[in-house]
Amino acid sequence: MVNSDNLNLLLKVNGTQHTLQIDPRVTLLDALREKIGLTGTKKGCDRGQCGACTVLVDGRRINSCLTLAVMYQETEITTIEELAKGDELHPMQAAFIKHDGFQCGYCTPGQIMSAVGLLAEGCPSDDAEIKECMSGNICRCSAYPGIVAAIQEVRQMQPNL
């Protein structure tokens, strides 16, 4: 058992190990944004009510605002910064641009990570089901139709869906 005010913590984000000295109150979201400097993951509500903070943990999408960084040692955390490989965008990123699945761009990393998580879960083919599966990500600019179109395009590109 460990009991300490400031904890030493090893966080593996996008394949890189980060050693942090951290107040246990720091959420996974704030660790990414304020401690590691990965500001691609956004804080919209900080209460699990908007989805802007969505990241993948061991491939599954979660809200990084509602959980503590100290609980995520020995996991693989993937953020929006990891999706593009150099100049080459992830197909979901490219599809979001093509279908204008965003306006201000603030919810966009969360939308894209959620969409990538959805693909891994086995994306439904029906628009209505995709919308339901993406309803944990609020877009106030309301680019919803473009988001659904982008996901449909990437889904259809995948051979086994």
């Binding site: 599954r60 999408r61 979660i62 809200n63 509602l66 998580g117 879960e121 599966c133 944990g136």
Partner: peptide
């Protein structure tokens, strides 16, 4: 209930 992200947590 909730959202896919929350249900995953």
């Amino acid at each position: 209930g909730a959202s896919p992200q929350l249900r995953n947590m």
